[in-house]
Design a protein around this nucleic acid. Structure first.
Lengths: 212, 212
DNA sequence: TAGATTGTTAATCGATTAACAATC
DNA sequence: TAGATTGTTAATCGATTAACAATC
């Protein structure tokens, strides 16, 4: 196992925020930043930021701070944003549509090269200029194109089946939007976006406010 | 402050999963479950489940376990899912569209009663049978209808402005999809869905695999 | 009653923060 | 050099797990 595989997921989840703010700073022509200044921007403590970064090596310099461009690039490499990925989407509903057309992913190097559905002939797709392929061709498509990331935007009933096809076809990273706990082998990364659970934190809050 | 305001957010974020599995059990006609069985389903430890539930009161019975229906209903109440909410969406792009039409939210009691955009006359909306109102009317609409939850699916450039309108109009809970750290008063709940950050955990994983 | 399982306290683990020597 | 700020160790805090008395 390489060194960074031991870095905890809570650290990893903070890295994109550092990366995003460093990108902003870079655009604004700022080339140096201290952990304290980065703390002011991100809301994480300076101590935590230094701890986090030191999981991956000493990017800073005593008495100076961090070079914005260097740190931005290093974080980009750590997050795997220094190259492009081939991605497929299965489930061509509204959410699949939104994810497929979202510019931010494309800009970050995630290229959606195929959209699949069990019912690819829905006239809705044509009206949206979306080419949707039949799910029967999913496995072959993934293998032929060496697709690395599979997105699931199907109903919860179909999600596990799609995950199984992904795994069988060699995909090693799955981004799941269905409200179901998928089962995948240990060597496949699974990241689930739990929209309902996120929304329910708001109703929880409103409810607890009501009680006062 | 009421008792549950002291319950940590990490506990709150586990409640929807308990609730979801209990709903499944209920549908299957199962009326009793132990913390150990719930552990097998959810992947959380039995000890953690008992700790979590006891933050809100003793719902179980020694030697028996938990009554599925009772626990399901109690968790629903705690999460504020025992009533309906009026919701608005601002930003009528693909993501706003997907969120607005997602059935799961409606079924959980979140009623989207208005969709707003700075450019409501986009012919695309008509083709989708979506009524989109001009953002100028947002503030009045929220006040007149006592809207409680505001969703932001605008670009990151417009998100803070929309959040400000929400706050000014009396909304106390904001669900943000824009990639920006919004600033809202302490008494307003803000939940941000960070899609990019979620996706980057997958590229991180693929990258770290590459290195082995 | 005996067995099962909770509610709850205590122990452990991991993550965050504080402190400061190293060093640019 | 003096001042600033990192890298890193130590202290603290919070969350998870273990253990078991209470009790159904």
């Amino acid at each position: 196992m390489s060194k960074d595989s031991q870095v905890s997921i809570t650290v990893i989840r903070r890295l994109p925020k550092y990366h995003r703010y460093l990108g902003d700073l870079l655009k604004r022509g700022i080339n140096r930043i201290s952990s304290q200044e980065l703390s002011n921007l991100t809301g994480f403590t300076a101590s935590q930021i230094r701890q986090d970064l030191n999981n991956f090596g000493g990017f800073g310099q005593q008495g100076y701070g961090y070079n914005v461009e260097e740190l931005y690039n290093e974080l980009g490499k750590i997050l795997g944003l220094d190259r492009e990925y081939k991605v497929v989407v299965t489930g061509a509903g509204n959410l699949g549509h939104a994810v497929t057309l979202y510019r931010g992913f494309k800009d970050a190097g995630f290229n959606i090269i195929g959209v699949f559905d069990i019912n690819p002939d829905n006239p809705r797709y044509a009206s949206r200029n979306m080419e949707v392929k039949h799910r029967d061709g999913l496995e072959d498509f993934i293998k032929e194109n060496n697709v690395e990331i599979g997105i699931i935007t199907t109903s919860k009933e179909n999600a596990q089946e799609v995950a199984d096809i992904y795994v069988k076809s060699g995909i090693k990273a799955i981004w799941n939007f269905a409200t179901v706990d998928l089962i995948v082998p240990d060597d496949v990364a699974l990241e689930s976006v739990r929209l309902s659970e996120s929304l329910f934190t708001l109703s929880y809050f409103l409810r607890s406010q009501d009680e006062r």
